[in-house]
Amino acid sequence: MGDKVLLVDDETDFLSVMSERLQTRGFDVETSDSAKNAVDQIEETDYDAVVLDLQMPGMDGIEVLKQIREKRPELQVILLTGHGSVEKGVEAIKLGAMDFLEKPADLEMISEKIKKAKQKRMLIMDKMTEKRIVDIVNRYGM
């Protein structure tokens, strides 16, 4: 099975065409057209990466990013935005987003970033597992 990605954008036409293109490249894609639903989906499903629109009704991408970092710190987020300025991108990176791309973005670049996101997530998860094992060993003096 391909890398599992959640695409989050309030533009349903964008979601439908982007998911079709990613699927033809072997990605396992799920979509969400609302920030709130995306947060719920992230809690229920293990994704390798999230591609997130920065500006959405109800809850903006920065707020979604904060919630993802809280609920799934290992999950890598790639922000996509229609903003021309980089200020929001800098803020997002400071908050822990893996990368920030301006729309329209090249699909090959997005694909590459998703693959890197998966690798980064696996490394973080390995470190988390290692830390848990060390904690157990230290706690029980094994």
């Binding site: 533009e11 036409d13 964008f14 065409v17 982007m18 079709e20 293109r21 033809t24 500006q55 229609g82 903003h83 021309g84 729309k103 329209p104 973005a105 699909l107």
Partner: peptide, 24 residues
């Protein structure tokens, strides 16, 4: 400008999808 960029992003993806089909 944000709205226009959103429309352009969709048009870009749709045109690219047509290209994907043509290559296939």
């Amino acid at each position: 400008s944000h709205e226009i960029k959103n429309r352009m992003a969709i048009i870009h993806e749709q045109a690219s999808l047509l290209e994907d089909y043509i290559h296939m």
